[in-house]
Structures are given as structure tokens and as C-alpha cells.
């Protein structure tokens, strides 16, 4: 069972409907992982922010979702990847309230607070990948 659950699922995010699908897929995984209701809500919210970033700032991309099992604990890992312009100043992009567009500037910094692990990998001109993990308690 754990072998099968390690298979990753890839979702294309190219429209706002893709952002909705991402939320739904993450909800199903979070429930499968038996995260608490609050942790489910935090993970889905973070996924929604990052999926929208992928669409709006990255010009579309993918979400790769994975159920993890490690040292007796279970978790959900999500990777949002785009081939957009990348982020020139990562520290600035992670500052609360800073926005490159018309948003509130909470997408990146806020979603970082909602998860256990947050890894931002970006190359200006080549794209951005944000990988987040939420572990069950």
C-alpha cells in the first residue's frame, strides 16, 4: 500500500480551473494522510496560493503531489514548477506585503508559514519550483 501511495501525481495548472483542481487534489491527499482538520486547511490554503503563483507569475506549470512515509510518520509533499521568468530577489519575494503584481504579497511568505518544509528553487529566466511538505502529527 505504501508503495502505491508513493506514486506521484502530476497536475497541469494552466487556467484558474487548474487552481481549483489543485485544491481538490490536495484535499484528497491530506485526508488520505489523516492530517488534522486545521493542518488540512493550512495545506490546502498554501497549495492554493502557490498554484495561483504558478499560473499568474509563472505563466502556468505543474503541481506534483506525493504521499510520503518516513520513520513512521506520514506527510504530503507538493512541488509547484513553472518555466516563467523566475524570481530575481528571493529575500524580497519572501517579504510580507511585497508584491510584483496586484496581489496582497502574502502568497509566498504566507504559505511558508503554513507548512513544515518550504524550499524555493528559482533561476531568473528559467523558472521557479516551490516544494512544500506537511507532516501528520
Amino acid at each position: 500500500m505504501s508503495g502505491a501511495s508513493r506514486t506521484s501525481e502530476v497536475l497541469e495548472i494552466t487556467t484558474t480551473a487548474g487552481v481549483v483542481q489543485a485544491r481538490q487534489q490536495v484535499r484528497a491527499l491530506a485526508q488520505q494522510c489523516r492530517l488534522s482538520l486545521v493542518d488540512q486547511t493550512k495545506l490546502i490554503t498554501a497549495a492554493s496560493e502557490l498554484a495561483r503563483n504558478t499560473l499568474v507569475h509563472g505563466g502556468g506549470g505543474t503541481m506534483t503531489a506525493l504521499l510520503l512515509e518516513e520513520r513512521g510518520r506520514r506527510g504530503v509533499r507538493l512541488a509547484f514548477a513553472d518555466r516563467g521568468p523566475g524570481i530575481a530577489d528571493v529575500d524580497l519575494a519572501l517579504t510580507d506585503g511585497w508584491t510584483s503584481g496586484t496581489g496582497m504579497g502574502l502568497g509566498l511568505s504566507g504559505s511558508k508559514r503554513l507548512v513544515d518544509d518550504f524550499v524555493l528553487d528559482t533561476t531568473p529566466g528559467a523558472g521557479t519550483t516551490v516544494t512544500i511538505t506537511k507532516w501528520g502529527r
Partner: peptide, 14 residues
């Protein structure tokens, strides 16, 4: 508003 939504909003910074 659900409690889990309120908790998440505060942590998100909204």
C-alpha cells in the same frame, strides 16, 4: 467562518 479557516488566515497574515 470555520475555526480552521480563522486559524489559517491569521497564520497566513490576513
Amino acid at each position: 467562518m470555520r475555526p480552521a479557516v480563522a486559524i489559517t488566515l491569521v497564520e497566513l497574515g490576513l
